[in-house]
Design a protein around this nucleic acid. Structure first.
Length: 813
RNA sequence: GGGGAUGUGGUGAAAUUGGUAGACACGCAGGCUUCAGGAGCCUGUGGCAGCAAUGCUGUGAGAGUUCGAGUCUCUCCAUCCCCACCA
């Protein structure tokens, strides 16, 4: 018998599967369809890390199983290939990102193929291919056409290291999510996408899909819908005459019931009120100073100073509380965010902890209007009965809220309102390596879309990749490319030089897989109707508020314009845990704890890597890598190889046992692949194999085993299968059905407890009656011993006899 | 501050969802094989006591419900992740 040599058999079968086109998805097949998806990788220079195969193997197992179960499976692969690392590398070395990307894709392809994933490579896509990004640009134009893309001057997050604008979602701890560079606020004209318009539907339609609960919750929290009221306060300056028109300052509050407790107002330092009333603010210089300070405070400082609130009163201005016409002071403070609500708040120190702290510091009245707290100590943010509130007195929070909203609406001082934490999506990037935004800026016509027939707007070839000093994209320097006639009026105009963020290409890629070569549409609607929605999408938790939300937004938009057939892209979403380094830390180059899958394949083979990644721990939990642990899986596969070469045709006396355990394992593996309990699937197969090792195994039974092993260790299973004389791939075999009769144990050993402690074990059969079992249990030697033992139990009566069918006996004495 | 998760041997972890705690695997110890190293095979392996059968004890801590709790309830403690001045 030959040695088990993965290096020899694995490439052989990979080639075989490719030649037989075993994993090719068929459009409009009569079989039921199954669309399984992994997050397409960014082809980095480092190549695959050991986190990739965890998700990929899981979905590969599910896809292979589905094929064997008779489904027409689409399990595609592609490249999310725009992005900063290739561009930064270009800045450093002058190598064109296109060249870097091609090279990296070649490496990734080699690696993925070496792991034996059953991707349909004929549908491979690449976001940097002009034939692909033509449609990314097309979608942008449609968004523009429907007023969902707009350009706005605003303070954005600016990465000082990338020289580039970032979305809120890309800023982590005041640092750039990608490069870790410092992020400051900077005012710029930016393209924005109105994701907020879809906020409600993005929440509501979560009911239509099967996502892990924590994923749904995280999305809902991120969108952050809240209910309350908008209340308008009139602003009055000391120089104003009675009856002169006053400025209206609207605020948003979730607690309109506390309106009588409002003792001051506060606006964000960026609020327009300050500039508007500059000449009426007596201490304008002081205010200006404060604003400047706030602006230069880095985000990091702001976080550290979280507890100490600062602000300045706007002397000379007063606000008028509409419910009681009281004049109250106005402050500006940086604890009020310009970008949430209206950028201004009504402060109720007695019932909001932040306002409470601020009021204490600046000696502002704390007026209790909700009973139930101890406002000498801290703000009472709970509910309660209204006091000191005129016509609201005696009501509870809910009643008071309803009543005050009615009152505000009636008097024209405000209305019930909802608000979201979700902001519109900053869509501009001042970089080269992204999809050019297909807009032409004309001095006469404004923003003019590139005509559809002129798509794609192809990235021009350039040699200098650095962002310009003004912070514009390197594209701004390519005069030939930038200067174009306006499509509308023909006047001299300029192209938009901002490019799209990396999230653009990944926001619709799953649709392209249905029809990757279409040059008339992003994908043929009939094909989309056949393939979508995606039946099962597995990916990282870190994409929940980024890619997952963005792509749902785009998909809903495409649904609205009748380009996509379903309101939701993904019917089911699951998430894998991270593979940590051996030191239990996140794998990273700097820590030097990165495990390269190439080395594992070289040493033990792809099947070992695959099975190990599934065996390593619960799929949804982070687990450290263990080089030692890999060996255990290798030994298991070695044993499979041994037994696979030592089969016979003998029937044995203990045949029943073997058949029973085999069917039990088929049942377990069949069910637990669906629940992603891969680790226990592997352990069940190990137990079964041990049984074969002890008892010997015949071909008929082993064939069943090979079929359930095949999705996990495809190369080994295929080798042993065809060794048995089969002429066709094991993956063309039907998935084994377990026989429920055979998966049932006929005789089983159950524990006998006395007063809750296991004292003996007896054998019973399925059909025994309780009385019969009781007799058997009481007759048992050990039980007798305990009943009559000198341990003090002697002569005690049996109070209770509990028998849980097929599980346990407990005798209470 | 808010949210989510987790706590079981030396390690990664199982536990049919209230029914034999520690399956499976790593590691370790002893043995066989080998010139040696490695690999392989066999045996043992939560702790304490005992040559042993066995007994006691044991799932972060404490209480409760139950014939029976790793699992349910309450009160603490610890760790990790995400979000974070969202009015």
């Amino acid at each position: 018998m030959e040695q088990y040599n993965p290096a020899k058999i694995e490439p052989k079968w990979q080639k075989y599967w490719e030649e037989k086109e075993l994993y090719k998805a068929e459009d409009f097949s009569k079989k039921p369809k199954f669309y399984s998806l992994i997050e397409f990788p960014y082809p980095s220079a480092e190549g695959l890390h050991c986190g990739h195969p965890r998700s990929f193997t899981a979905m590969d197992i599910i896809s292979r199983k589905r094929r064997m179960q008779g489904y027409n499976v689409l399990f595609p692969i592609g490249w999310d290939a725009f992005g900063l690392p290739a561009e930064n590398y270009a800045i450093k070395t002058g190598t064109h990102p296109k060249a870097t990307t091609e090279k990296n894709i070649a490496n990734f392809t080699r690696q993925l193929k070496s792991l034996g994933f059953s991707f349909d490579w004929s549908r491979e896509i690449n976001t940097t291919d002009p034939n692909y990004y033509k449609w990314t640009q097309w979608i942008f134009l449609k968004l523009f056409e429907k007023n969902l893309a707009y350009k706005a001057k605003m303070d954005i997050n600016w990465c000082t290291s990338c020289n580039c604008g970032l979305a809120n979602e890309e800023v982590v701890d005041a640092k750039c999510e990608r490069c870790g560079g410092e992020v400051i606020r900077k005012e710029r004209e930016q393209w924005m996408l109105k994701i907020t318009e879809y906020a409600d539907r993005l929440i509501l339609d979560l009911d239509k899909v099967d996502y892990l609960a924590k994923i749904k919750k995280q999305q809902i929290d991120w969108i952050g819908k809240s209910f309350g009221a908008q209340v308008v306060f009139k602003i009055k300056s000391s120089t104003m005459l009675e009856g002169e028109h006053m400025y209206d300052l609207p605020v948003y509050t979730t607690r309109p019931d506390t309106l009588f407790g409002c003792t001051y107002m506060c606006v964000a330092p960026e609020h327009e009120l300050i500039e508007k009333f500059a000449d009426q603010i007596d201490n304008y210089e002081e205010v200006k100073d404060y604003i400047n300070q706030a602006k230069h405070k880095s985000e990091q400082e702001r976080l550290n100073l979280e507890k100490t609130k600062t602000g300045v009163e706007l002397h000379g201005l007063k606000a008028i509380n509409p419910v009681n016409n009281e004049e109250i002071p106005i402050f500006t403070a940086d604890y009020v965010l310009a970008s949430y609500g209206t950028g201004a708040i009504m402060a109720v120190p007695a019932h909001d902890q932040r306002d409470y702290e601020f009021a204490k510091k600046y000696n502002i009245e704390v007026r209790e209007v909700i009973a139930g707290g101890e406002i000498e100590k801290e703000a009472w943010e709970g509910e309660g009965t209204l006091i000191n509130s005129d016509f609201l007195n005696g009501l509870n929070t809910q009643q008071a809220t309803d009543k005050i909203i009615d009152w505000l609406e009636e008097k024209g001082f405000g209305f019930g309102a909802t608000n979201y934490k979700l902001r519109d999506w900053v869509f501009s990037r001042q970089r080269y390596w992204g999809e050019p935004i297909p807009i032409i800026i004309c001095p006469h016509c404004g923003y003019v879309p590139v005509e559809e027939k002129d798509l794609p707007v192809v990235l021009p070839e350039i040699e200098e990749f650095k962002t310009s000093e003004t912070g514009d994209s390197p594209l701004a320097l390519i005069v030939d490319w930038v200067n174009v006639p306006c499509p509308k009026c023909g006047a001299d105009a300029k192209r938009e030089t901002d490019t799209m963020p990396q999230w653009a290409g990944s926001s619709w890629y799953f649709l392209r897989y249905a029809d990757p070569y279409n040059d008339k549409a992003l994908a043929d609607l009939k094909k989309l109707k056949y393939w979508t929605p995606i039946d099962w999408y597995n990916g990282g938790m870190e994409h929940t508020t980024l890619h997952l939300l963005y792509s749902r937004f785009w998909h809903k938009f495409l649904y609205d314009i009748k380009v996509a057939p379903t309101p939701e892209p993904y019917a089911k979403r699951t998430s894998q845990g991270m593979v940590l380094g051996e030191d239990n830390e996140k794998m990273s180059k700097s820590r030097g704890n990165v495990v390269n899958p190439d080395e594992v394949v070289k040493e033990h083979g792809a099947d070992t890597l695959r099975v190990y990644e599934m065996f390593i721990g619960p799929f949804d939990q982070a687990t450290p890598w263990s080089t030692q642990g890999v060996v255990g899986v290798r030994r298991f596969l070695e044993k499979v190889w041994q037994i696979g070469h030592n089969l016979d045709d003998k029937k044995r006396g203990n045949e029943d046992d073997l058949v029973f355990l085999t069917h039990k394992t088929i049942k377990q593996v069949t069910e637990q692949i669906e629940t992603m309990d891969f680790n226990t699937c592997v352990s069940a197969m190990m137990i079964l194999l041990k049984k074969y090792q002890e008892e010997g195994c015949n071909q008929e039974i082993f064939r069943l085993f090979l079929k359930i092993l095949a999705p996990f260790a495809p190369h080994l299973a295929e080798e042993l299968w065809q060794n048995l004389g089969h002429k066709k791939s094991i993956f063309l075999e039907p998935w084994p059905e377990y026989n429920p009769e055979l998966a049932k144990e006929s005789v089983r050993e159950i524990p006998v407890q006395i007063n809750g402690k296991v004292r003996s074990k007896i054998f019973i059969t399925e059909d025994m009656a309780k009385e019969e079992i009781k007799k058997l249990a009481l007759a048992d030697d050990n039980v007798q011993k305990w009943l009559a033992s000198p341990g003090g139990l002697a002569g005690k009566e049996i109070k209770k006899f509990i028998y849980v069918k097929g599980k346990i006996i407990n005798i209470v004495i």
